[in-house]
């Protein structure tokens, strides 16, 4: 019974982690585009006169809440501390941080299933 429970819990954790990993990679890419394409072109090149890359901010804005929910769910499943959960959520706002969070989640899961 206990083994069956463990297996179900692990499966749940893996699903949550996979969802988190997808959203972390997506948010990382969108953050890179936001910080290094949208913001510099808007303020330094077009200076507000054109909005060719505004879609980046829009898409990032719409998908970040999904990342937040995925990160929160993963952290609950992985039994992370509240501070750690906050860090995982904030990782979605910085260009490279979400990639690091994704790698860490994967490493922790592999260590758990070894």
């Amino acid at each position: 019974m206990s083994t069956a429970n463990n297996s179900a819990n692990l499966k749940g954790l893996q699903s949550a982690m996979n969802r988190f990993r997808v959203m972390a990679i997506w948010c990382g890419v969108m953050s890179l585009l936001l910080w290094f394409v949208n913001v510099p072109t808007h303020y330094l090149i077009f200076k507000g006169s054109h909005h060719y890359f505004t879609w980046i901010a829009l898409v990032h804005g719409f998908t970040y809440p999904i990342y937040v929910l995925a990160a929160f769910h993963y952290c609950l499943k992985a039994r992370k501390s509240f501070n750690s959960t906050i860090m995982f959520i904030l990782a979605g706002t910085l260009p490279v941080a979400s990639f690091i969070a994704e790698r860490r989640a994967l490493a922790e899961f592999r260590a758990l299933t070894k």
């Binding site: 692990l10 937040v68 952290c75 609950l76 499943k77 992370k80």
Partner: peptide, 22 residues
């Protein structure tokens, strides 16, 4: 508003984690 909701859930976080945790 989502962040507000998460902050409000903070006092219950540990209970929620124990219930849902793998």
């Amino acid at each position: 508003w989502l962040l507000a909701l998460l902050v409000l859930s903070a006092p219950f976080y540990n209970r929620l984690r124990d219930k849902m945790g793998a």
